[in-house]
Write a protein that binds this DNA or RNA. Structure first.
Length: 898
RNA sequence: GAGCGCGUAGCUCAGGGGGAGAGCGCUUGCUUGACGCGCAAGAGGUCGCAGGUUCAAAUCCUGCCGCGCUCACCA
């Protein structure tokens, strides 16, 4: 066995083993309770990033844990076609070859994208496998595979027939670069420095002559070309007299009315608002109230159209500059101010979004949102951590209709056909032959595709074969938990809730666990442009998948972002190595094969046969088992990791192994056998606890345990050929030994005390020192007697127990009920040691004062719970005893100095 | 503008009404028969600030300061 764990030597082997054995395959005939998770499907063209690593590690932990608990676990994997994102990437690649998508035409282009999908979809799947994801790959799905396409059409048709999908002319967010409509969510607002332009519109008097100006303020002067009114607040005394009059729209020369509308804020700008109904959401609504015409002045690429007159053909930003110039020349530009505004940008490409009037498809969401809100209110779906509930409610309660049509090629084509004869719409799952309304065969399918998130919303039941009523749906829906990050709470989680309830009549998941975002060590979001990405694949190459997984788990505290850095990962890589070496120690101390000695109810020692140390470690183990399970059930992943880390390193390695070394090198065969058994039991259980987080190293070490003849059982009671299918450790009340636990905890203090004294006298680690232990009472005396070997071995001391004699010249330590003396002959830095003791005494005095104050406070005595008061009394007693002893120690020191 | 989260050791973070914790880093010592990716012993903190509630506040409440995020059609 190597001295250092080398993950690269084993990881691939074990993953193949798990797959070959079919351990990740779920059963549709099992009697076991189901546990199911659907993966948040990564983008097909994407590459595994650190966020995926976290997301899938957490899911894997839950799945592997439940598997070991005997559940019929199903983790459904898959990928998302990610419409706009994927199309953009493929377009960019094609451009490198000098090909535009229009050159290929729709059909050929889509074929090219499928090719990409084949290559890159596979890549991300391999990367997930590299991470160790225990997905049931036989059930891998893609949001555009045949079955899923059927589900999408079915859902669309049903919603349409129920009147929840409609088509109409509305103002939508439009990306002029992607040339498609976007939903509200796909627009991100960014604070941008801009300018506020004050434009003077000449007022027309009754006779048509000019009569002064009304000044409007705007951040987008170019939109004035499409102005159809100026609006003021009806209560605005500055403008009251102008309502009903007209202004002459400069440059254009059109007459437009001055109207009154309540929604105009008198404080804002000049209080007079120019109305461009076809390019602004507020204006659109005002226009509807006043029956104003809507003049579109741009084409879908963001260039001025024929309605822009002489500006036709200009890009919208060029046009802005020209308009401003022209206003200035005419003397009707009053002023320009610096102005910060929240600009809407396309979340995919960052282009400034243009509100555009167009014919689009929408989902009418409030009727879907209502039951989805209720489900969370009633706790049928729990959101964890709870804080996100409010965010969910907030969004759901203010939900607006969802624009689902996209003018791109890659995606689910909307299953609607338009009739060239009667203009009617036929919506159908299969391809219709004739128009539903006039029976004309002269029909044509909608060219728009659906928003990617429309199909993602069906994921939790689409993957199980919906709309067919499959066995999988019956068993695994609702899924047990969804693990995701908060940035797609609205995009995805909320919509799955709506669709799941609508089509399945039940929530899509019992729990939603929302985890953090992974940031860099400075707390910044990782991005390729910033160059601060930590690539999980590099990390796995260098440190191993387990180290990465453990790092992410240990940092996955609820409600806080993860700041990941290499030193942290290195630390947990070291932990993996520690486990490796602890196991190595165990193996080195078991000669030959166990020959099944321990495999069949192999741990069968009666409590009186166990040593105090054995009892101590078993107590610790059992408590850790319980705490780990409690934490897992609450999704407290960081706590799980900490508990296991502390137990393996801090308890098992630092103390148990050290305590047991003399036994193993002794010649008491019975004691050796028993110790070996405890070592194996504790090691095996530790590996099991660790397995969900670090599957590879634990499998490797388990295989070595099998090599020496030790086997775990499956939940079904059979020999487990893999730790992945072994039965999770169970808390056993009869392996809790409170007395032994306290005894070893006490002995640890004694040992640390002596080591501390050794450091004071600068004793060389290999040299022995003489110490005199002076116990207060019989109980302490007995404890020390029982453990004098442990003390002597772990502190390299010759121990003398004395109830009366105390050395004259010595340095000392005090632990509860015990003084530890180390005689010295003036070879030490007495002043420094005195300083140390004095510091300690003054701290004791301070603590005593606090305690004293409490105990002399009548309110405390009367109102505090009895046990708290009692504990305070004990504490006071203990502190004052310790103080007395420390003072004594100080006296001894003085003598050393003389 | 509204809402949410976070300020605890030099750094990264647990904890969350009754004796301040971990890892890393730092100091000192170590060819300790598992491991130097290690062992041992240490130093290091008015728990952001100010009030309040309470017998008792790092912990609960209010305000403030700082950092971050989300939502919002505001010219």
């Amino acid at each position: 066995m190597d001295k250092t764990y080398e993950p690269r030597k084993v990881e691939e082997k074990w993953y193949r083993f798990w797959i070959d054995k079919g351990f990740f395959r779920a059963s549709t005939t099992s009697q076991q309770p189901p546990f199911s998770i659907v993966i948040p499907p990564p983008n097909v063209t994407g590459s595994l990033h650190i966020g995926h690593a976290l997301n899938n590690t957490l899911q894997d932990i839950l799945n592997r844990y439940k598997k070991m608990k005997g559940f019929n676990v199903l983790w459904v994997p898959g990928t998302d076609h990610a419409g706009i994102a994927t199309q953009t990437i493929v377009e960019r690649e094609l451009l490198k070859e000098g090909i535009k998508r229009e050159d290929l035409g729709r059909e050929k282009f889509v074929k090219r994208v499928w090719k990409w999908k084949e290559v890159y979809g596979k890549r991300i799947i391999e990367q997930l496998q590299r991470l160790g994801a225990s997905c049931d790959w036989s059930r891998e799905r893609f949001t555009m595979d045949e079955g899923f396409s059927l589900a999408v059409r079915e859902a669309f048709v049903r919603l349409y027939n129920d009147g929840l999908i409609y088509r109409g002319h509305y103002l939508v967010n439009w990306c002029p670069r992607c040339e498609t409509a976007l939903s509200d969510l796909e627009v991100t607002r960014e604070e941008t420095k801009g300018k506020l332009y004050y434009l003077k519109y000449p007022i027309l008097s009754e006779d048509g002559s000019s009569d002064g100006f009304v000044v409007v303020a705007t951040t987008r002067p170019e939109t004035m070309l499409g102005d159809t009114a100026v609006a003021v607040n009806p209560n605005d005394s500055r403008y009251k007299h102008l309502v009903g009059k007209e202004v002459l729209l400069p440059v254009v020369g059109r007459r437009i009315p001055i109207i009154a509308d309540d929604s105009v804020d008198m404080e804002m700008g000049t209080g007079a608002l120019k109305i461009t109904p076809a390019h602004d959401f507020t204006d659109f609504e005002i226009a509807n109230r006043h029956n104003l015409p809507k003049i579109q002045i741009m084409d879908f690429r963001g260039r001025m159209n024929e309605n822009a007159g002489k500006y036709k053909g200009l890009d919208r930003f060029e046009c802005r500059a020209r308009i401003v110039e022209d206003f200035e020349r005419e003397g009707i530009l009053q002023k320009i101010e610096e102005y910060n505004l929240q600009l809407g940008k396309c979340y995919r490409c960052g282009t400034v979004v243009e509100p555009m009037l167009s014919l689009q498809w929408f989902v009418h969401t409030p009727p879907l949102a209502h039951p989805a809100i209720q489900a969370v209110e009633e706790g049928r779906t729990r959101i964890i951590p709870e804080g996100w509930k409010n965010t969910y409610f907030e969004w759901m309660r203010n939900i607006r209709d969802w624009c689902i049509s996209r003018q791109i090629w890659w995606g689910h084509r909307i299953p609607a056909w338009f009739c060239r004869d009667c203009g009617g719409i036929t919506v159908s799952v299969g391809e219709p032959k004739v128009c539903r309304h006039c029976l004309s065969p002269n029909i044509e399918q909608e060219t728009d595709v659906l928003d990617t998130w429309f199909s993602s919303a069906l994921w939790p039941f689409g993957v199980f074969g919906w709309p067919e009523q499959t066995q999988e749906l019956r068993i695994f829906y609702p899924t047990s938990v969804l693990v995701t990050s908060f940035d797609i709470l609205f995009f995805w989680v909320a919509r799955m809730m709506m669709m799941g309830i609508r089509f399945m009549g039940d929530v899509p998941f019992r729990d939603v666990y929302i985890h953090a975002l992974v940031r860099d060590e400075k707390g910044e979001k990782m991005s390729k442009t910033k160059g601060n990405v930590i690539d999980p694949l590099d990390i796995m190459d260098e440190y191993g998948a387990d180290a990465l997984r453990f790092s992410l788990t240990a940092l996955a505290a609820q409600g806080r972002d993860i700041r990941l850095s290499l030193p942290i990962i290195e630390g947990y890589r070291n932990f993996m190595n520690k486990i490796w070496n602890a196991s190595r120690f165990v193996f080195l101390n078991i000669d030959g094969k166990l020959r099944g000695e321990y495999s069949d109810s192999w741990f069968s020692f009666k409590s009186e046969e166990l040593s105090v140390a054995d009892k101590w470690i078993l107590t610790r183990l059992n408590r850790v088992i319980r705490e780990v399970e409690e934490s897992l059930e609450k999704y407290e992943f960081d706590k799980v990791a900490r508990l296991i880390y502390q137990f393996i390193w801090g308890d098992f390695c630092d103390w148990y192994i050290e305590l047991v070394k003399p036994v193993l090198s002794g010649n008491n065969t019975g004691a050796i056998k028993r110790t070996q058994a405890v070592l194996i039991k504790v090691l095996a259980s530790s590996l099991q606890l660790l397995h969900p987080i670090a599957p590879f190293i634990t499998e490797e070490l388990y295989s070595r345990l099998r090599g020496i003849g030790f086997t775990l059982k499956t939940p079904g009671g059979e020999d487990a050929e893999s730790i992945a299918v072994s039965s999770y450790p169970v808390f056993k009340e009869n392996e809790i030994f409170e007395d032994a636990h306290q005894e070893i905890e006490f002995i640890k203090q004694v040992i640390v005390g002596i080591r501390n004294l050794r450091a004071v006298v600068r004793a060389h680690p290999s040299s022995k020192v003489d110490v005199i232990l002076v116990p207060d009472n019989e109980a302490v005396l007995e404890r020390i007697k029982r453990n004098s070997d442990h003390i002597a071995n772990l502190s390299r001391a010759s121990v003398i127990i004395s109830q009366h004699e105390k050395p004259k010249k010595a340095i000392a330590q005090v632990v509860e009920g015990l003084q530890i003396f180390l005689p010295v002959e003036g070879l030490i830095d007495v002043d420094r040691e005195m300083e140390r003791i004095k510091r300690e005494i003054s701290k004791l005095i301070k603590d005593l004062e606090v305690s004293q104050k409490k105990l002399s406070n009548r309110d405390f005595l009367e109102r505090a719970p009895e046990d708290v008061v009692e504990k305070e009394r004990e504490k006071f007693e203990e502190l004052s005893q310790k103080k007395r002893k420390m003072e004594e120690v100080l006296e001894k020191l003085k003598e050393v100095g003389t």
